[in-house]
Write a protein that binds this DNA or RNA. Structure first.
Length: 222
DNA sequence: GACCAGGCACATC
DNA sequence: GATGTGCATGGT
């Protein structure tokens, strides 16, 4: 008799939390830095994102106003280590321009919006897709939306909870439909998935030592 | 040198 | 709606 999805998700969470403990996400010093990091990490290794963010910090550009006033080519030069630097510089400018055009440059203002409205508004910004929007909502604005990423897809696929061609919204719905809409839970859960994913759920990674190894899984499904 | 990394927009069918 | 492609650096 297969366990319910809810039970499975809770068991996974408990096993990951027991193994890794609280993650304290998002790894950033400010809300501005969270948003910048969410955009820069698109399809990119986090280590390279850290280099780019360090450059922005050294240039004192990690404030909304400084980002608004900085020319895109200057941003592009500084964020070069994160890859796709021309595109990402444009995306940073798009976000900041939207923040000023629609919300007078007041990031805190976004917290007042209902979650659905907030998400739809973020998705209307060029360069903000579903995962980036959810990262901003969950980690910078502390509202309960689940962030599904490449690690999440691999994990659920490996354990047979979703099929190969699963779409983003289906992936996050697995968590949102079976768990309480708790911001702290979603925060911790996604961070734990990244923790286990970096170690055990990427190409050529091994299951040895994985906290989820004792659960039914297919190592080839990553 | 190939493959990968905490995606997204756009074109095409 | 599904699929393919460009964007680009740095690590393995």
């Amino acid at each position: 008799m297969p366990r319910s999805t809810r039970q499975t998700l809770i068991r996974f969470y408990d096993a990951l939390f027991a193994a890794y403990g609280p993650q304290g996400w998002w790894p950033a010093r400010s809300r501005t830095e969270i948003v910048v990091g969410a955009i820069l990490t698109q399809n990119t290794n986090w280590r390279n994102v850290e280099r780019a963010i360090a450059n922005l910090r050294a240039a004192r550009l990690l404030t909304w106003k400084a980002l608004r006033d900085a020319p895109a080519n200057k941003l592009a030069r500084l964020i070069r280590p994160s890859g796709y630097f021309n595109i990402k510089a444009r995306r940073l400018k798009c976000f900041v321009n939207w923040l000023w055009d629609r919300h007078r440059g007041n990031f805190e203002d976004l917290r007042r919006l209902p979650l659905g409205t907030l998400r739809a508004e973020l998705l209307s910004v060029s360069g903000i897709g579903p995962e980036t929007a959810d990262s901003i909502i969950l980690y910078a604005l502390r509202k309960p939306t689940f962030v599904a990423d490449a690690y999440t897809a691999r994990l659920l696929r490996r354990h047979g909870l979703v099929n190969g061609g699963v779409r983003y919204d289906e992936l996050k719905a697995v968590f949102e439909d079976h768990l309480p809409a708790d911001e702290r839970l979603f925060n911790q859960y996604h961070a734990l998935i990244v923790a286990v994913g970096k170690k055990h759920c990427r190409p050529r990674a091994r299951c040895d030592g994985c906290p989820l190894q004792r659960f039914e899984h297919d190592p080839r499904a990553c």
